[in-house]
């Protein structure tokens, strides 16, 4: 399998200056992810699942270890890469799907969804057409396409968020509870889109509150419970 990510000895903690203390998130994590592979992160609340995803995306700075990402430009250590390189990879190869839509005032749903395509050089017309297809796939009603998502319900916002986050195929996709606040139809649309991307070779690492939603996609489970950090075959794990 083509390697995509090779994590070795990764550690993260937070220094809280105003309290004068340190909080450990996780320590010495190692695992690999290949093209088209889906890794589920497991562990109780506070085990560091979301923190790990954010560290891989470099929203959090790792404390130690190596995150070797096999980019189109060659292998690069995401833990130490220059900010400008990380910004470039986020636009082109690494996607992050969160539970929250970051809206900007006065920007329509279809503009938000088409933005990653436009920034990727897709002509505006085509980007808009593809954005509308994505919005309807996730079940956003047509009369909302030109509206500003700032005022949408949580579920509707999440659909816009997913349409945007998944519109451009990425090499690596980080998923932080993307099914939260979704109805059954939208969950099904999400799973089917993830299946498509997986088929096309996207490597995925995800945190899911109800892993049953994505059961058929999971290849491996990494348990972040302290003293139990290792990856297991999917068949050994009780979902």
């Amino acid at each position: 399998m083509t390697p995509i990510l090779d994590i070795e000895g990764l550690s993260k903690g937070f220094t809280l200056h105003h309290l004068g203390n340190q909080i450990e998130a996780f320590d010495n994590i190692s695992f690999k992810v290949g093209a088209g592979e889906f890794v589920l992160l497991k562990g109780a609340n506070g085990a560091g699942k979301s923190t790990l995803l954010r560290t891989l995306y470099r929203s959090y700075l790792p404390r130690g270890g190596v995150i070797r990402f096999y980019s189109d430009h060659g292998p690069i250590d995401l833990a130490r890469a220059a900010d400008i390189d990380i910004a470039h990879l986020r636009r082109t190869e690494i996607g992050f799907v969160t539970q929250f839509l970051q809206t900007r005032p006065r920007v329509s749903a279809e503009a938000i969804v088409s933005e990653p395509l436009r920034l990727h050089g897709v002509p505006a017309d085509e980007a808009l057409t593809r954005a509308r297809v994505a919005l309807s796939t996730f079940g956003v009603k047509q009369d909302l396409w030109k509206a500003y998502p700032t005022t949408f319900s949580g579920g509707e916002q999440q659909k816009v968020n997913l349409a945007r986050a998944l519109i451009l195929p990425q090499k690596l996709l980080l998923l932080d509870e993307p099914t939260a606040s979704l109805d059954a139809n939208a969950r099904a649309a999400l799973v089917s889109r993830l299946e498509e991307l997986k088929e096309a070779g996207t490597a995925m690492i995800g945190v899911f509150h109800h892993p049953g939603d994505v059961e058929k996609l999971i290849d491996r489970v990494v348990d972040l419970t302290p003293d139990l950090i290792n990856s297991e075959d999917r068949t050994d794990v009780d979902l």
Binding site: E8, H73, I76, D77, A81, I84, D85, H88
Partner: peptide
């Protein structure tokens, strides 16, 4: 052991 010297992407 993974090497640490990553290439620059944005040149």
């Amino acid at each position: 052991t993974l090497t640490l010297d990553a290439p620059r992407i944005v040149t």
